[in-house]
């Protein structure tokens, strides 16, 4: 029974189907909210789906200077790794795949996703992609440190003495004594995590790697058709994964039965997407490369380190 249940879990609920729908929904909501904030009508809710389907319909051009195998393989591996990451998120307490230190697995699979984006860009052989991938790497260096500090803090709080890396213990802890967001000591960590999400996903204020105006779609300069569709889908699923991670870590409300939990989880994810991705998108212009790095290694890491120290002192 459990094998069929895991297969069902993987395929349906917290697995593939739910992830794809949720990511399309979150991406759509994000674009509509940004439009509404600028007092304009904005695209339909299914616009990300149309974008991906339209890209599938266009022909795929392999540039002469590109290394074809890596050029085509990178988006597939990237999308696969992001979808596997989504399997680890506990949707309403139930997660498709269970490994007892899956926070580090999530960290590394997200790194793998960014690495495939970088390797794909370098395989496309265009100078714009070269500049784009160097910016993506700088962005990765800048958000990796605060993300790790936040994970250490949450692990320390939920570990009750023996720190943990596993989301199931985090969920159990929050089921017992309320979501972590209510704990004032963890507010700096929550703020740091909210800042990390847009840079990890590559959302507008921090999308220094795909800056259309500066370096002509940077990393994706040579991509068209199917690989481009996979990268766009990867972008959307990353949006869902990061907001899901935030909800799993800070906003894990578990009432009695499953359906209410899932509903609360979806609302929470939408809220997190709005706060962390739509608001900065509508409010600020794009950061310069060294501003991103300086901002993350001073302000955001400061918040994360502050809450880590507070937790460590035993508050």
């Amino acid at each position: 029974m459990t094998f069929i249940q895991t297969i069902l879990n993987i395929l349906l609920l917290p697995g593939l189907a739910f992830t794809l729908i949720a990511s399309i929904w979150l991406a759509g909501v994000d674009r509509v909210l940004v439009a509404r904030m600028q007092r304009r009508v904005g695209p339909s809710l299914l616009q990300p789906l149309y974008d991906v389907l339209k890209c599938l319909g266009k022909e795929t051009i392999i540039p002469r200077k590109a290394n074809e195998k890596v050029f085509l393989l990178a988006p597939v591996v990237g999308l696969a790794s992001v979808l596997v990451t989504a399997m680890f998120l506990p949707v309403g307490g139930v997660s498709a795949l269970k490994v007892n230190s899956d926070m580090v697995v999530i960290l590394y699979l997200l790194t793998l996703a960014s690495v495939t984006l970088i390797v794909g860009a370098s395989a496309s052989g265009s100078p714009f992609a070269g500049v784009g991938l160097s910016r993506e790497m700088v962005a990765m260096i800048s958000y990796e440190l605060p993300l790790v500090l936040v994970m250490l803090t949450v692990g320390r709080v939920c570990g009750k003495g023996l720190a943990t890396f596993s989301l199931s213990t985090v969920t159990a802890y929050q089921a017992a004594n309320g979501p972590l967001l209510l704990n004032p000591v963890l507010w700096p960590a929550a703020i740091a995590m909210l800042f990390v999400i847009p840079c990890e996903v590559g959302q507008h204020p921090f999308d220094i790697d795909e800056a259309e105006t500066e370096i002509c779609e940077g990393v994706l300069a040579e991509y068209s058709g199917r690989p481009l569709a996979q990268f766009k889908m990867m972008h959307n699923v990353k949006m869902y994964v990061m907001s899901g991670l935030f909800c799993a870590m800070f906003l894990n409300i578990s009432t009695g039965f499953i359906l209410a939990d899932i509903l609360i989880y979806c609302v929470a994810c939408t809220l997190v997407t709005f706060v962390s991705m739509s608001v900065p998108h509508a409010v600020t212009a794009r950061f310069r490369v060294e501003q991103v790095f300086k901002f993350y290694w001073t302000v955001v890491t400061g918040c994360a380190a502050l809450s880590l120290i507070l937790v460590w002192i035993g508050l």
């Binding site: 439009a35 904005g42 695209p43 616009q47 714009f128 800056a211 040579e222 991509y223 481009l228």
Partner: peptide, 15 residues
């Protein structure tokens, strides 16, 4: 608001 039609400005002709 051309975005109502699903329009978006892209940087490279490949897209």
């Amino acid at each position: 608001d051309a975005e109502r039609l699903g329009c978006k400005l892209t940087g490279s002709p490949r897209q």
